[in-house]
C-alpha cells in the first residue's frame, strides 16, 4: 500500500520535472528567435521540410473531408428542405473546427514525429553534443528554426485544408448534388463571420502549431539517446500532440464561442 503511494509520488515528481524541463526548453527556444533573423536561410530550409512536405497530405485530406461533409450534410439538410444552407454547414465546420484540428492532427503525425525522430537521432549520434563542443548552441541553431517554421506553417496548412475543403464541398454540393450555386455562396457569406469564424480558426491553428512543434521538439531533445528511446519519444509525440490538440480545441472553443 505504502509502496503504491510512493510510486504515485515518484510518477508525479517525474511529470512535474518533465513539465519544468519542457518550459525551460521553450524559453531557450524563444531566446534564439533574435539570432534567427540574421540567418533566414535556416528558417527557409525548415519551412521547406515542415510546410512544403505536408502540403500534399493536408491538401488531399482537406478536399476529401469537404466532399464528405457536403455529401453527409446534403442528405440531412434535404430532409428539412434546407439544402441551401449546405455551404454554411460545410464552411462553418471546416473553418471553425475541422480545418485547424484535423490539419493539426495530420501535422502531429506527419511533421511532429519526423521532428522528434530527427532531434532524437541527432542526440543519439552525439550531433547535439558535437555542436555544443563546437561552441554552437544546439537549441538556438537546431531547435529554434524548426519551432518558428512550425509556428508559421501550421496556420497556412490549416487555411489550405479549409479552403480546399470548401472547394471540395462546392464540387460535391453544387456539381454533383445540384444545390444552387448562388445560394451555396451567398448563404455561406451571410452566415460566416470574418472575426467570429475565420480569425478564431486562425488563432486556433497558431496555438496548435506552437503546441505540436513544442511537444515534438521537447520529446526529441529529452529522448533517451538510444534507438528504443527515440522510437518511444516519437510515439509519445504523436499521442501527446493529438491529445493536446483535442483538449485545447475544447478550451479554445469554449473561450471563443462560449458566451
Amino acid at each position: 500500500m505504502l509502496e503504491q503511494v510512493v510510486r504515485l509520488g515518484r510518477a508525479g515528481i517525474g511529470i512535474i520535472e518533465r513539465l519544468g524541463r519542457g518550459h525551460l526548453l521553450l524559453w531557450h527556444i524563444l531566446g534564439g528567435l533574435g539570432a534567427l533573423s540574421v540567418r533566414p536561410g535556416l528558417l527557409i530550409r525548415q519551412i521547406y521540410s515542415v510546410g512544403v512536405h505536408s502540403m500534399l497530405i493536408v491538401g488531399v485530406s482537406g478536399t476529401f473531408v469537404g466532399m464528405v461533409l457536403a455529401l453527409q450534410g446534403f442528405y440531412i439538410l434535404s430532409q428539412f428542405g434546407a439544402e441551401q444552407t449546405l455551404g454554411v454547414m460545410v464552411a462553418a465546420s471546416l473553418v471553425r473546427e475541422l480545418g485547424p484540428v484535423v490539419a493539426a492532427l495530420l501535422f502531429a503525425g506527419r511533421v511532429g514525429s519526423a521532428l522528434t525522430a530527427e532531434i532524437g537521432l541527432m542526440k543519439a549520434t552525439e550531433q547535439l553534443s558535437g555542436l555544443e563542443m563546437m561552441a554552437v548552441n544546439p537549441v538556438k541553431r537546431v531547435l529554434t528554426p524548426r519551432f518558428l517554421a512550425g509556428f508559421i506553417s501550421m496556420p497556412l496548412l490549416a487555411a489550405l485544408f479549409s479552403a480546399l475543403g470548401v472547394l471540395g464541398g462546392f464540387f460535391v454540393g453544387v456539381g454533383l448534388l445540384g444545390v444552387d450555386e448562388g445560394a451555396f455562396w451567398s448563404q455561406m457569406q451571410a452566415k460566416i463571420d470574418l472575426h467570429e469564424d475565420v480569425y478564431n480558426g486562425v488563432i486556433k491553428s497558431l496555438v496548435f502549431g506552437v503546441v505540436c512543434t513544442w511537444i515534438a521538439l521537447f520529446q526529441g531533445y529529452d529522448a533517451t539517446p538510444t534507438s528504443e528511446g527515440v522510437s518511444r519519444a516519437t510515439t509519445r509525440t504523436v499521442v501527446h500532440s493529438s491529445l493536446a490538440v483535442l483538449g485545447l480545441d475544447f478550451v479554445l472553443t469554449a473561450l471563443m464561442f462560449g458566451d
Binding site: I47, M55, I152, L156, A159, L160, S162, A163, V202
Partner: peptide, 9 residues
C-alpha cells in the same frame, strides 16, 4: 507553399 497558404487564407 507560403503563397498557397496565403491565397487560402
Amino acid at each position: 507553399f507560403m503563397a498557397a497558404g496565403l491565397v487560402a487564407l
